[in-house]
Design a protein around this nucleic acid. Structure first.
Length: 425
RNA sequence: GUGAGUGUAGCGCAAUUUGGUUAGAGCUUCGGAUUGUGGUUCCGGCGGUUGAGGGUUCAAGUCCCUUCACUCACCCCA
């Protein structure tokens, strides 16, 4: 019988990597706090309708990427493929935006999409997500974009490109959509089969196609900027003005069409050249119709999601700092069999005092215990002599200096020593 | 879902131009180097039904088929 492995597209984040993830999430949490976002914990599965109605029936996500199943009560349940719909659902359900109130929420965790895995893409992947609900003004868009940029700035990511576009609203998008249909129908022989299909269902997505011939056809397509209604045009100008006031560089791209139906007005992505084919580290925009689509009142929103797996990948690629990996400060060593008990007691007392302390629990010999201690700052050694005299030998492993001190003073002694060495570092 | 590439010890690898005896070192790990002192050095031990199944052959890690997994790309996105 062969050993069971993790399902395709999933993976274990092992200790050598997990501490780096903690660094990223902690840094993000701090940034969120600075921007006034509160953390929200959400279910990982939701009713399927939340996504089919919220994200959109004709999107790739809903059409072919969702993990959907019936639970034991016969309800159709879906593992969340993205976070925004869930956040909006929670806001509606808990009246967070009642009477025109607004909230800023963030969260992080796993998302699920059934796609073929490749570099930077997994079936269970992780996102850091921020949503600003209840505010229609373009200043909120600017704040959200600024937040995502600041997130990456703090983590030390380099060579990022911010790409923005406006996808219009329910008033002007249909007009533009019609223009596109007319244009692409005239160029239908240049389109790939999937885009021919898109023509009837979601013509905006043709603009996004990377197929060479489609791209060529798209070059001559009507410009969305020419179709934007006054409100959308003004909104877009305000977003751009805000970004410029904050000193951010960005690229305009009329080709940027988010794959999710709920976007209105602002759409943006942050791209990295160090990711291979999957080059987006974050993406987001405004979604003023999402709330109504899932049965809520009129709640405008703007937000973004950032791929944790991808951020970690880029940071690794660019040699960014993850801070210091947590290690053990003190290793307690037993010289003989009889001392093992005392060593465990001392280790526990050191731990209770707030230090990272370790001792051997597997019966290894003195020499190998000392080898393990080599990676720590201090070794506490107890043998026959120490037990007799009620002392412990405390050895500073960086300079080799060793002192014998009464066992009851050991914990305070080492705490003092470590405090001093911390300040020296 | 489609295509290409790759599967040998815990890890990263090797195994002679077109098959040839008992599949090898390195790192890690564990133990030891005159009786109680570490990251260096030296010696030694553990560790593999070569992804799995089938086939060709006197003989398969090596060739063929099937299957599974991983990787990259298409698609799409975080």
């Amino acid at each position: 019988m062969s050993a069971i492995t993790a399902p395709r597209g999933t993976r274990d984040i092992l200790p050598q990597e997990s501490w780096k993830w903690s660094f990223i999430v902690n840094s993000a949490a701090e940034t969120m706090k600075n921007f006034g976002f509160s953390e929200i914990h959400l279910p990982i599965f939701e009713h399927t309708e939340l996504f089919s109605r919220g994200v959109g029936e004709t999107t790739d996500i809903v059409e072919k990427e969702m993990y959907t199943f019936n639970d034991r009560g016969g309800r159709s349940i879906t593992l969340r493929p993205e976070a925004t719909a869930g956040v909006m659902r929670a806001a509606i359900e808990n009246n967070l935006c009642a009477q025109g109130a607004s909230v800023k929420l963030w969260n992080w965790g796993p998302m699920f999409r059934h796609e073929r895995p490749q570099k930077g893409r997994y079936r269970q992947f992780y996102q850091i997500d921020a949503e600003c609900l209840g505010i229609a003004d373009a200043m909120a868009d600017v704040e959200v974009i600024a937040l995502s940029i600041e997130l990456f700035r703090r983590l030390g990511l380099k060579n990022l490109e911010v790409v923005i576009n406006s996808v219009g609203c329910e008033k002007c998008r249909p007009v533009y959509r019609q223009k596109l249909v007319e244009y692409f129908t005239a160029h239908i022989d240049e389109l790939c089969p999937t885009c021919v299909d898109r023509l009837g269902r979601n013509p905006l997505r043709i603009l996004d196609c990377k197929n060479e011939s489609c791209g060529h056809a798209a070059d001559g397509a009507p410009d969305i900027f020419d179709s934007l209604c006054d409100e959308c045009r003004e909104h877009f100008e305000k977003v751009r003005g805000g970004l410029e006031r904050l000193g951010f560089n960005y690229t305009l791209s009329k080709r940027l069409v988010r794959g999710l139906d709920y976007y209105t007005k602002t759409a943006y992505e942050i791209l990295s050249g160090d990711l291979g084919a999957q080059n987006a580290v974050a993406g987001g925009g405004r979604y003023d119709n999402l709330s109504k689509a899932i049965g809520g009142g009129k709640i405008p929103g703007v937000g973004f999601a950032c791929g944790l797996d991808r951020v970690a990948l880029v940071m690794e690629e660019q040699g960014c700092s993850f801070g210091k990996r947590p290690g053990t400060s003190v290793y307690c060593v037993a010289l003989d069999e009889e001392s093992r008990g005392d060593v465990q007691v001392l280790t526990h007392k050191l731990r209770m005092s707030g230090l990272s302390a370790e001792c051997d629990t597997s019966g290894r010999g003195f020499k190998s215990q000392m080898r393990s201690a080599g990676a720590c700052k201090f070794a506490c050694i107890i043998g026959n002599d120490e037990r007799k005299s009620g002392t412990v030998a405390v050895k500073n492993l960086s300079d080799g200096e060793q002192v014998s001190i009464p066992i009851e003073e050991a914990v305070t002694f080492i705490n003092e020593k470590l405090k001093n060495s911390e300040t020296l570092v």
